[in-house]
């Protein structure tokens, strides 16, 4: 009989969401929420286009990427037809609703109520000329990369 290695359970995750498409942000949101459901401490850092998830005016306008996304199984030239992205987004939202996965704004509320900490990336804020007022209230703070690493102490960092 071989002895099985016993690993320490994960206690904290620090998830980075860097993409601004619906298929880019949901995996990170689902994993952060799933962590809280398991009693794992969770923080989410929104950077680059992922920042739109926590921008009041943008959060509910995020769409599925139909161009340059081989997983969609549609040729790029068709994916580029006006309306394709909206169509794919509607389809995906319907499927997610069946699984009881909420829309972006409700998902953020849920994460916050679950005790996940949400942070905006300072570099991305500056780059896209966003101000603190553009962020939703659930955001704890705007962090530099250094501060992000500091707060991630003891966490597994997951980049999405």
């Amino acid at each position: 009989m071989t002895e099985e290695t016993k690993y320490e359970p994960i206690k904290k995750v620090s998830i980075v969401i860097s993409k601004g498409s619906l298929d880019g942000i949901y995996p990170g949101l689902i994993m952060a929420n799933g962590a809280r459901m398991e009693g794992i401490e969770a923080m989410v850092f929104f950077t680059f286009f992922g920042l739109e998830t926590i921008i009041k005016k943008r959060m509910n306008k995020i769409k599925v990427a139909t161009v340059g996304n081989p997983g969609m199984h549609i040729p790029t030239i068709i994916g580029a037809i006006p309306g394709m992205s909206s169509f794919a987004t509607t389809m995906m939202k319907k499927e997610m609703d069946k699984l009881d996965i909420p829309p972006v704004d409700e998902f953020i509320e849920m994460l916050s109520a679950a005790g996940a900490k949400l942070y905006a990336c300072k570099a991305a804020m500056d780059m896209f000329h966003y101000k603190k007022e553009d962020l939703i209230d659930e955001v704890e703070a705007i962090l530099t990369v250094g501060e992000f690493y500091e707060l991630s102490a003891g966490a597994q960092i997951i980049f999405t």
Binding site: N33, D100, A113, G115
Partner: peptide
């Protein structure tokens, strides 16, 4: 799901995490 419980059970999400840490 948690979402459904939070909406329909009469106990909201925040409270759920407090009651069952």
């Amino acid at each position: 799901t948690m979402r459904k419980i939070g909406k329909k059970s009469g106990v909201d999400m925040k409270e759920l995490y407090k009651l069952f840490p």
